[in-house]
Design a protein around this nucleic acid. Structure first.
Length: 662
DNA sequence: GACTCGAGTCCCGCC
DNA sequence: GACTCGAGTC
């Protein structure tokens, strides 16, 4: 326990009772949490009685790794540990909220009327459902598009609102329509035995509310709870934490200046009001920043002071001096990318830096493309973090849908996806007939496919197709009963002739290879999972993959090990640090994002996001913008981000605010 | 039923 | 510029 300052030491050694750690950026939050867990264990608390909660898998993995080093062992549900730990049971659980909720629901969901093997729907699946709902309601796209419906549903859900509550809270006709859609959407999900991501939290919350005995059972699993990034908890997460913390040994850590998840329902009030929930809570403040140089901290402080409503706190730099952060302007985004990569290469060669010392941070997921191109040209290793794009790929969706089926979980979305992929003569019309029949007869679609339920009249080609599919799936299930998961997947891909299908669709050899390699990556991920999990099974693998616990991107893993330049959004960068950071695309409309320009409070959140970006840098920070940017096929003029003026001291300080009402 | 082509849209951020 | 969707053709 060496190397802690008095405040950190205080936080680490307060072992019981409610504790609030208000910690600025770079003040050693994660360190305090990990030290505290280690200390608890050393003081005799069994590891399995400790629960650490994080918001991202990255944070969870990092904490597991640190803890592993500190205690010289692995941690539960961690794939970071090479060997399976000897005593699996004495290890603390480090988990994201969603992962924790999935585990609770897999054990206890039945009282809520969902099947134990519920499917988890992601964005793509949700869209299909939303479309169905709108079709059912006979709503024209212009009145309410599927994406809008999902937007509203997401909004209500992250505020923990039921459809009934949403209907009451509506202002406009479109909203009211969405609320009705929300009700139908939930009904459909339940009918299909599926939940979406938000439901994972909502249902857990409801489970605890309606079934006290389950709440007590789940709460009794742990004696200590630690929550990182507490400022980012939404209503459900807040209630779940409270419901689990009977023992009162609750330690939360956070920073209101880094609250960047307001759009998914996070409320800073939770951290600001912690002492109201727990009046005897001890409060520890960490204000010494050990990460960045004084020059960088100065920029960060200057910027964040423009936010009106915040806890006034100072961030003191422990590292004096330092290079002044640079602000660069480029003619267009190609030059911006080229020059950034050029600069990195120069510093790699001249300053003895390593690729892993660099990060390029951006606001939206379309920005990295051009940087990827330039990095590839320069033959520099990079890793693109985040972005669910892996799951958006057709091949991934296809293979995962088949795997869900093989897991004995033939939910409708998966069945519809693969029923005619590869083509087996089952046309749109037939699928529609089947689907309508399934709805009318209240039987699962899959039972019509297999013929377990009486099928409606269909043409001969369709029947042959359905029988083929059924035979294929049953063959695999029969042949591979005792096989490893990897063998099952291989058998599947061969049986459905997926490679042939890819070759048929894609003419370009390069594209064929690229697509096929994605399929192989899934198999590799399955192999990795099988090695690390204590009781591997297909359903658990699919859960983990969907929750992001299991990395399916083989290339990514390799590069990570290989030491690579990190490309990520500022949201993903939270909690991380790099010696050299480039924040790119600092333009009005990007950061702050144009969708946030309507209200002051969302501009404040954009500013906090920028603050998070700035405070990732340890030694060198470069911010850049380009004067024109391609948008919808045409180069368009841009305006420098207001944050650039603010952080360079060129904007009016809020102390000299313009008169009201102007 | 499978495939091609052209019109229409532009979906933040994450688990 | 990239992608999806629906009409139209074989």
């Amino acid at each position: 326990m060496s190397g802690l300052n008095p405040d950190q030491y205080d936080a680490v050694n307060t072992l019981s009772g409610p504790l609030l750690v208000l910690a600025g950026a770079g003040t050693g939050k994660t360190r305090v949490i990990t030290f505290r867990i280690a200390k608890l264990i050393k003081s005799g608390v069994p590891g399995e009685r400790i629960l650490g909660m994080t918001f991202t898998n990255k944070a969870a993995n990092e904490m597991k790794e640190r803890l592993g080093r500190m205690l010289g062992q692995g941690t539960a549900s961690g794939k970071t540990a090479k060997k399976k730990p000897a005593q699996d049971d004495h290890i603390p659980t480090i988990s994201t909220f969603h992962s924790l909720c999935v585990r609770i629901l897999r054990r206890q969901i039945e009282p809520l009327g969902y099947p134990k093997k519920f499917a988890i729907y992601n964005r793509g699946d949700q869209e299909g459902l939303a479309r169905n709902v709108l079709r059912e309601l006979n709503v024209a796209d212009k009145l309410l598009a599927p994406s809008q419906l999902l937007f509203w549903i997401g909004n209500w859900k992250c505020k923990s609102m039921s459809p009934e509550q949403a209907i009451v809270a509506c202002d406009t006709d479109a909203q009211h329509l969405a609320a009705v859609g929300y009700q139908r959407y939930q009904r459909q999900l339940k009918l299909k035995g599926a939940v979406d991501f938000d439901d994972l939290l909502l249902l857990t919350e409801r489970l605890f509310q309606e079934h006290e005995e389950i709440r007590i059972l789940e709460a009794s699993r742990f004696d200590h709870i630690l929550v990182d990034e507490y400022q980012d908890t939404n209503t459900s997460q807040y209630r779940i934490v409270k419901a689990l913390a009977d023992h009162r040994n609750l330690c939360v850590v956070g920073d209101d200046d880094q609250s960047i998840y307001g759009w998914r329902g996070a409320e800073v009030e939770h951290i600001l009001n912690f002492h109201r929930d727990w009046p005897d809570a001890k409060v520890v403040r960490l204000e010494d920043n050990y990460r960045s140089t004084e020059a960088i901290i100065e920029v960060a402080n200057t910027l964040i002071r423009f936010n009106a409503t915040r806890h006034d706190k100072v961030l003191r730099a422990a590292r004096p001096g330092g290079e002044r952060p640079g602000v660069l302007q480029f003619p267009n985004e190609t030059v911006e990318a080229q020059e950034t990569v050029h600069d990195i290469r120069r510093r790699l060669e001249q300053k003895g830096r390593e690729p892993r010392d660099f990060a390029i941070l951006f606001r939206t997921n379309e920005q990295p493309r051009i940087f990827e191109t330039e990095l590839r040209k320069a033959k520099l290793p990079y890793i693109l973090v985040g972005g669910m794009s892996f799951f958006d790929r057709k091949e991934v969706k296809d293979v995962l849908s088949y795997l869900r089926l093989l897991d004995g979980n033939p939910d409708e979305v998966s069945v519809l996806r693969i029923i005619n992929t590869p083509p087996r003569g089952i046309g749109k019309k037939s699928v529609e007939t089947l689907l309508n029949y399934a709805i009318d007869a209240k039987v699962p679609l899959w039972d019509l496919v297999t013929g377990a339920e009486m099928r409606p009249p269909l043409n001969a080609a369709t029947i042959r197709g359905l029988d083929d599919l059924t035979a294929q799936i049953q063959d695999i299930q029969y042949q591979t009963q005792d096989d490893s998961l990897v063998d099952i997947a291989r058998n599947l891909i061969t049986t459905i002739r997926y490679r042939t299908e890819l070759d048929r669709i894609y003419a370009e050899p390069d594209e064929r290879e690229a697509r096929w390699s994605v399929v192989e990556q899934i198999v590799t991920a399955l192999g990795q999972y099988e090695e690390s999990a204590s009781k591997p099974n297909l359903g658990d693998f699919l859960d983990r993959l969907l929750l992001g616990e299991q990395d399916a991107n083989d290339e990514k893993e390799k590069q990570l090990k290989k030491n690579a330049i990190a490309l990520m959004t500022m949201h993903s960068a939270k909690g991380l640090e790099f010696p050299e950071v480039y924040i790119v695309g600092l333009e009005e409309g990007i950061l702050p994002h144009h969708r946030s320009l309507e209200s002051d409070s969302s501009i404040d959140e954009e500013r906090r996001l920028c603050y998070v970006g700035v405070t990732r840098a340890e030694e060198r920070l470069t911010m850049s913008m380009s004067l024109t940017r391609m948008k919808w096929g045409k180069p368009r003029d841009t305006k420098p981000s207001r944050f650039l003026y603010e952080l360079t001291g060129k904007a009016e300080h809020p102390n000299y605010q313009k008169p009201r009402g102007v």
